[in-house]
Nucleic acid binder design. Structure first.
Length: 171
DNA sequence: CGGCTTTGACCTGCGC
DNA sequence: GCGCAGGTCAAAGCCG
């Protein structure tokens, strides 16, 4: 089972997190890239597009919620705040953030037994960017992934990239 | 009618 | 110890 599905997020028009505001919750770019690569092969340089995932903590987030051991944050250019990543999310909260004019939205994976959370907020500096933070690992496949798999069987060349995380969690 | 969103209240952690 | 900020809960309303 993949740690993190990134194939849906590669079509980003974003660049490296360069705002120092993010540094408090995201590791530096080199470490972040290395961690992202290690985690899920999620770093991609595709022509002029760069996708950088920032991994904050792979083994727990500080509280007793050890099941939420992975945090991945990235920024993408999008007019919509909600990205359709194939999973079904249920909104459970909305909060105004002190240093941000935009509220932060909180989502949980609506799949039973899946405790993955996602935070979405607009970038403070450039509101055309959306900062998305995933917390936790899905214990199920995205419904669309099933579709992807079927497609890849029917048309293996139809997808130039698929998430191919290390087999660390393939058990 | 069921599922989802909204939104105010409550809880908890952290800094001063 | 207190206040603030972030995160979560839960009730009410909306929509398909």
């Amino acid at each position: 089972m993949p740690d993190f599905e990134v194939s849906d997020y590669l079509d980003l028009d974003g660049s490296i997190f360069d705002d120092d505001r993010s540094s408090q919750s995201m590791v530096s770019s080199e470490k972040g890239m290395a961690a992202a690569t290690e985690l899920s092969g999620a770093t991609s340089k595709n022509s002029n597009r760069q996708v950088i995932l920032y991994i904050k903590c792979k083994n727990g987030v500080g509280k007793n919620k050890s099941e939420l051991g992975v945090r991945v944050a990235f920024r993408m250019k999008s007019e919509m705040e909600v990205t359709d990543d194939g999973y079904k999310w249920r909104k459970y909260g909305k909060k105004s953030i002190k240093n941000s004019p935009n509220p932060r939205n909180y989502y949980k994976c609506s799949n039973v037994g899946c405790n993955v959370k996602k935070r979405i907020e607009r970038d403070v500096k450039d509101q055309s960017y959306v900062v998305t933070t995933y917390e936790g690992v899905h214990n199920h496949e995205t419904p669309s992934m099933v579709y992807y798999n079927q497609m890849s069987i029917m048309a293996p060349n139809a997808w130039t990239f698929q998430a191919s995380p290390p087999s660390s969690s393939s058990t």
